[in-house]
Simulated scan of single mutants.
Amino acid sequence: MTHNGALDWMLSEALAVPETLHAILLTRDGLLRAHSQGIARDEADRQAAALCGVISISRSTTGFCSHRGDGAEPTWRQTLIEFDDAFVLLIAAGDGSYLAVSATDRVDLEACGFRMQQLVERLGSAMASPARQDAGNPA
């Protein structure tokens, strides 16, 4: 399942918080599922691939936060990247999908994260990207 434009409209809701810039929905494989109007398709594709790597690295550090004593590692929920004058927020958005929003340094991070969570809760099943299945046919 890749980008076909059908889900682009839903990302405008994630940008309702002042100072947000762009939003993309990506799969666990780094494929673009949807992007907001303000970002070009090629740039959104590039960011989906890059952010997939960021999420993978973030998820692999859960052992660093392990504190329960039972050996269980915590579940990854979100990653925040901070720049001099901007942020990128990444959250899980349904089975095998992630939602990323960029914003200026003037954004209300709490409001932005809350809006993203609301969007995921409301549209989670549409955002899901189940793992690709091998059809058993040779390529």
Score class of each variant (00 low, 15 high):
44 A>R: 05
20 T>M: 03
72 A>K: 05
52 C>N: 14
31 L>R: 06
44 A>C: 11
24 I>A: 04
111 A>D: 07
117 Q>I: 13
107 V>E: 13
98 Y>G: 03
68 R>A: 15
63 G>M: 11
43 E>I: 06
110 E>F: 15
49 A>F: 00
105 D>P: 08
75 T>C: 07
50 A>F: 00
96 G>I: 11
90 L>S: 04
31 L>E: 13
36 S>K: 01
77 R>N: 15
117 Q>D: 12
67 H>G: 14
70 D>L: 09
41 R>Y: 11
54 V>Y: 03
69 G>Q: 02
73 E>P: 07
100 A>Y: 07
25 L>D: 00
16 A>H: 06
36 S>D: 03
116 M>D: 02
30 G>H: 00
17 V>I: 00
102 S>F: 11
79 T>W: 07
104 T>P: 14
90 L>R: 04
22 H>Y: 09
49 A>L: 06
32 L>W: 00
74 P>W: 04
96 G>K: 03
109 L>E: 11
112 C>L: 12
56 S>P: 10
21 L>A: 12
91 I>S: 13
23 A>Y: 02
96 G>M: 06
57 I>S: 06
65 C>N: 14
17 V>D: 01
19 E>H: 07
45 D>W: 06
54 V>P: 04
23 A>K: 00
63 G>E: 14
43 E>W: 08
95 D>S: 10
61 T>Y: 09
41 R>I: 03
71 G>M: 09
87 F>E: 06
28 R>D: 04
108 D>H: 04
60 S>E: 09
69 G>M: 05
81 I>P: 05
34 A>P: 09
64 F>N: 15
92 A>K: 00
18 P>M: 12
43 E>L: 09
87 F>Y: 13
80 L>N: 10
105 D>K: 06
110 E>H: 14
115 R>I: 11
52 C>L: 14
14 A>E: 00
45 D>N: 14
100 A>F: 04
99 L>K: 02
76 W>D: 15
88 V>P: 07
106 R>Q: 12
19 E>N: 02
23 A>V: 07
65 C>Y: 13
111 A>I: 09
16 A>F: 04
103 A>F: 14
67 H>R: 13
23 A>I: 01
84 D>N: 12
98 Y>F: 10
38 G>H: 05
76 W>F: 10
32 L>T: 00
94 G>F: 03
38 G>A: 02
72 A>Q: 11
19 E>T: 02
38 G>V: 02
80 L>E: 08
109 L>V: 07
18 P>Y: 03
44 A>D: 11
